[in-house]
Amino acid sequence: MLSPRSLLIRGMLVGLAAGVLAFVFAYLVGESPIDAAIAFEEAHADPAAAGEPALVSRTVQSTVGLLTATLIYGVALGGIFSMAFAAAYGRLGQLGPRATAALVALAGFVVVALVPFLKYPANPPATGSEDTIGRRTSLYFLMLVIALASLALAIYIGRSQVARFGLWNAAIIAAGAFVAVIVVAHVLLPSIEEIPEGFSPIVLWNFRLASLGTQVVVWTALGLGLGAVVERSLRREAVLTASA
């Protein structure tokens, strides 16, 4: 049987690899819209603040800094993802480790990345006011908490309806409940509209696409990576028990 401890370690190692891939994608696709946004920021900056020396150079920010961020992010998500996998494995009918990991990663992407993004999308530098950072942070995390709570609700509803409607229809009912709660939350929560006048919509679009793409890379790597790692170790274990 799988041990939670070894799953956590494997999840974090797979997360480290996912972080490397995320860095490669983010560096290649995301840095050019960030540079464009910073150029806009400098062109519209308060002349009094323009003379300030940068604490960390742009080169460091876009390489070692970005890599550090994606690695920590990957390890953190990999750890919690492996625990979600540990909870789901063996509880989804006959689904094996690879299918379970893929399904949990898909759910993770939708709940942790896509749903908050659709309400409060990622923004390039220079597009948010310093004064509203508190409000924007609270709303973003509130949306994330609502998404996680909706997932818990959907799982509860799905499990309670399986006996009556069967697995497929219960899953549809659960997904429908999730979408309904998320739509209501998206309508009720206030929107944030702080993009300054004259900011290129193309830069904004490219940046957001790069951000969403980075999330797709992270979650795909986590799902496929952990599934493959667990499958391999279970097969090895099965061979050992059979030959013992």
């Binding site: 840095e31 960030i34 960390v56 800094g65 970005l66 961020a69 992010y73 530098p125």
Partner: peptide, 9 residues
């Protein structure tokens, strides 16, 4: 230091 990652993530 993590600024680019913070925005992109």
């Amino acid at each position: 230091f993590v600024h680019d990652g913070r925005h992109l993530l």
